[in-house]
Design a protein around this nucleic acid. Structure first.
Length: 608
RNA sequence: GCGCCCGUAGCUCAGCUGGAUAGAGCAAUGGCCUUCGAAGCCAUGGGUCGUCCGUUCGAAUCGGACCGGGCGUACCA
C-alpha cells in the first residue's frame, strides 16, 4: 500500500473515531473533500492536512478545535509518529521512519513496473504529432513537437493506455507541387519558381533524383514527382548530411511512429469526396463565390465558414482533414490527440465542428497545444522558413552536441531535456549560438552524471564483494538501518513518483517528470557530498579495509540497507528518464578539456 | 475588434485543480577535493509574483478591468 494511502486511511480512521466519540457530526465528514500535501517547510512535518479547516463550517466548530481533537485521535495510529496543530488549523504530521523504509521495499518489489499502471487498462489513443510538411528536413521548431508528443506518448503508455503514434504526411497540394517544381528546376539548373523552395537540400535532392528517378524528373507528371520527393525526404538520401531524412532524424531523437498516414491516400480511396457528400447531405456545405464552404453548425460561436473546395475546383486542406479525423474515429480510438503549435489553435474548433456535423463525437478530439519556438542567433531573431532555406535542423544541433560531449545520443538528450524542461504553454527561445557554444552546460548532463554515480556506487560495491540486496531480493536486509534524515526524505520523494506519473499523464505535462528528476538528482548529490564530509561513507574505504579484521567494526547491515536504498533511487531515476526518453548512462567520462587558448599555440592567429 | 497562450529574482523558467516565511538553474560573491564519480557540494546576496479591484479565514494561484508580449482570425498547410 502506498504511503499516501496509508496516511489517508489513518486520518479517516481517526475521524471515524471522533464521530463515534461524539466529537464530530457524522454528516460533516460525509462527502467532505480535503487534501494531504507536502509542506514546503520541513518544520511543518512530512505531510500536512487541511481536513480540520475543510470540515469546520459543516461541523460547526472552529478549525483549530477539530484539529486538536484529530491530533489526539491520530496518536493511536501506527503510521503517524506525531501530529501537531499549526496556523489556522493545519494538522502537521510526522511519519514513523518505518513508513519510509517500507517504501523502499515497494519500489524494489515493483522493479521496472514502478510508477506504471497495468498495461492496456486505459483508453485506445491515437496520438498524432510532428506531421511537419515533408518539404524540408526536421527543424528545431518541429523538434519541440516531436519531443513533446513522444514524451506524452510514453506517459500515456505508462498509465495504461494503448497509444498509436501517427505522422500525417501532407503529400499532396500546393506545397508539394511547389516543392516538386523547385526540385525539377534545380535539376535543370534553373532558378526556383516564385515562392519555391531554395535550400541547399533542394539541390541535393535534385542531384539524387537524377540518378534514382530520372524519368520522373524529366516527365511532366508533377504529382508523381512530388510523391517521389516526399518519399525521399522521409527516407533520406543515403550518406547525405544535408538530407538525413525525416524518419531517421526523428529516430535519432528517439521518436518513432507506428503509422505514417498519407494525405494523398484519402483521395486515392475516395474518402474525401465521400465525407464531403455526407456533409452536403446533412446540409453543412454552402456554395459561395464559386467555392464550397463548410458551414459551422448552429450555435458554434467558435468558428466561421471554412472553404473545403476552392473556386478552382481543387480541395482545400481542410477537406482532407475532415476525412482524416473521420477515418481515425472509424478506426475505433477512444481518443484522438493531436500535438499542435499554438498557431494552429483555431483548428481545434474547426475539427470539432466538422465531427459534430458528421454525427461523430467531437469530444474525442483533443488538441495538445504548445507555444512556438523562436529561433535566435546571438540574441537576434532569425526568421525561419523552409522555403527560403534558412532554418536550423535538429541534426545539426544534435551532431554538434554529440561531438562536444564525445557521445552519440548526447545531443538527443540535451534537446529533449531543453524542450521538456518547460511547460508547453511557455514560449521557447532557441539560440543557435548559445546552444552550440554552451552545449555542455545543459542541466541534462548533471542529471545523467547523477545517474552514472548511482551506478558507480554499485560497481564499487561489487568490487569489494558487496551486492545490492535489491538485486537478489531483500531477504535479510534491515531497512530500519536507514535513519539519516536525507535517506528518509529521499525515500519519501520516491513514494511520490507513481502519483506524479499519473498526474503528469493526465495533464499531458512531461515537464513535471523532468523537474522531478532534477530534484532527485540534486537531493542525492547533496546528501552524498555531505555524507563524505561527515566521514560516514556508504562503502568502507580502501584504507579501512586494509586493516585486518575491519569487518568486525563495520556496520554491514547499514551498508546493505543503503545499497538497497540506492538501488531504489536508481530504479526510480531510470523509470523517470525513460518516461521522457532521456538516456541514463551507467558511466560518463568527462569530455576532453579544450586546450586553453593559446597555450601551445605559438602559430598564426586564427581567423585573421 | 474578437479568440487562445504568456507576464514570478539580472537571465531562462517551475509553482497556478487556493494554504503557512514564493523556488530551481544560470550569472555574482565567499568557502569545500589524501581514498565510495567535484559535470559536484555548502553558504551569501538578489522578488511591489505586470497594475488595480473583487471572492475567501487565506490569492502568485480563482473572477473582473486595464497594461505589455506571442499566436490566430486565408479560396496557405
Amino acid at each position: 500500500m502506498s504511503l499516501a494511502v496509508r496516511v489517508r486511511s489513518a486520518i479517516t480512521a481517526a475521524l471515524d473515531a471522533m464521530v463515534r466519540a461524539g466529537d464530530l457530526a457524522a454528516d460533516a465528514v460525509e462527502g467532505s473533500t480535503w487534501v494531504l500535501e507536502r509542506p514546503k517547510r520541513p518544520e511543518h512535518g512530512d505531510l500536512a492536512t487541511n481536513v480540520a479547516m475543510a470540515l469546520a463550517k459543516r461541523a460547526g466548530q472552529p478549525p483549530r478545535a477539530i484539529a486538536e481533537k484529530l491530533a489526539r485521535a491520530l496518536a493511536e495510529s501506527d503510521v503517524i509518529a506525531a501530529a501537531e496543530v499549526a496556523g489556522p488549523g493545519f494538522v502537521n504530521l510526522r511519519l514513523h521512519p518505518r513508513v519510509f523504509q517500507d517504501e523502499i521495499q515497494e519500489v524494489l518489489r515493483a522493479g521496472a513496473g514502478w510508477g506504471r499502471a497495468p498495461a492496456a487498462t486505459g483508453e485506445r489513443i491515437d496520438l498524432e504529432f510532428v506531421s511537419a510538411n515533408p518539404t524540408g528536413p526536421v527543424t528545431v521548431a518541429s523538434g519541440r513537437n516531436a519531443v513533446l508528443g513522444d514524451a506524452v506518448g510514453r506517459l500515456l503508455e505508462a498509465t495504461g493506455h494503448r497509444v498509436t503514434r501517427e505522422y500525417y504526411i501532407n503529400d499532396r497540394g500546393n506545397q508539394v507541387r511547389k516543392f516538386a517544381e523547385s526540385v525539377r528546376a534545380a535539376a535543370t539548373g534553373k532558378a526556383p519558381p516564385e515562392d519555391g523552395y531554395k535550400g541547399a537540400y533542394v539541390i541535393e535532392l535534385a542531384g539524387w533524383l537524377r540518378g534514382a528517378e530520372p524519368a520522373l524528373l524529366d516527365g511532366d507528371d508533377v504529382d508523381a514527382l512530388g510523391r517521389a520527393c516526399v518519399t525521399w525526404m522521409l527516407r533520406g538520401v543515403p550518406g547525405s548530411r544535408t538530407l538525413p531524412g525525416i524518419r531517421p532524424s526523428l529516430a535519432d531523437l528517439r521518436v518513432h511512429f507506428d503509422v505514417w498516414f498519407s494525405e494523398e491516400s484519402l483521395y486515392r480511396w475516395g474518402a474525401v469526396p465521400a465525407v464531403m457528400r455526407q456533409l452536403e447531405q446533412g446540409g453543412h456545405l454552402l456554395r459561395k463565390d464559386g467555392a464550397l464552404f463548410f458551414q459551422a453548425p448552429e450555435g458554434s460561436v467558435e468558428d466561421k465558414d471554412r472553404v473545403v473546395r476552392k473556386s478552382d475546383g481543387t480541395w482545400a486542406y481542410f477537406a482532407s482533414d475532415v476525412a482524416y479525423f473521420a477515418d481515425k474515429i472509424a478506426r475505433g480510438y477512444d481518443r484522438l490527440i493531436a500535438v499542435l503549435g499554438a498557431d494552429h489553435h483555431g483548428y481545434v474548433a474547426r475539427v470539432r465542428n466538422a465531427l459534430s456535423a458528421l454525427g461523430l463525437p467531437p469530444d474525442r478530439f483533443e488538441a495538445l497545444l504548445y507555444q512556438l519556438v523562436f529561433i535566435t542567433k546571438g540574441g537576434e531573431a532569425v526568421k525561419s522558413s523552409k522555403r527560403a532555406g534558412n532554418f536550423v535542423t535538429i541534426d545539426e544541433v544534435m551532431d554538434e552536441i554529440d561531438e562536444a560531449a564525445g557521445r552519440k545520443g548526447a545531443g538527443a538528450d540535451a534537446l529533449r531535456f531543453f524542450f521538456l524542461s518547460r511547460s508547453a504553454n511557455s514560449n521557447v527561445e532557441f539560440d543557435i549560438e548559445l546552444a552550440k557554444k554552451k552545449s555542455l552546460d545543459n542541466p541534462v548532463f548533471y542529471v545523467q552524471y547523477g545517474y552514472a554515480r548511482l551506478c558507480s556506487i554499485h560497481r564499487k560495491a561489487r568490487t569489494i564483494g558487496l551486492v545490492a540486496p535489491a538485486r537478489a531480493g531483500l531477504s535479510g536486509t534491515d531497512l530500519a538501518k536507514l535513519v539519516h534524515p536525507d535517506e528518509l526524505a529521499i525515500a519519501h520523494k520516491l513514494a511520490d513518483f507513481p502519483e506524479l506519473v499519473a498526474e503528469a499523464a493526465k495533464l499531458r505535462e512531461p515537464h513535471r517528470i523532468v523537474f522531478y528528476i532534477q530534484e532527485l538528482a540534486r537531493d542525492f548529490q547533496s546528501y552524498f557530498t555531505r555524507l563524505k564530509g561527515a566521514g560516514d561513507p556508504i562503502l568502507p574505504r580502501d584504507s579501512a579495509r586494509a586493516v585486518p579484521g575491519w569487518e568486525a567494526t563495520w556496520d554491514l547491515d547499514k551498508t546493505h540497507a543503503r545499497l538497497a536504498w540506492i538501488e531504489a533511487i536508481r530504479l526510480t531515476y531510470a523509470q523517470a528518464l525513460a518516461l521522457v526518453g532521456i538516456s541514463g548512462p551507467e558511466r560518463m567520462d568527462r569530455p576532453a578539456e579544450e586546450s586553453p587558448e593559446g597555450a601551445e599555440d605559438t602559430g598564426a592567429e586564427s581567423d585573421a
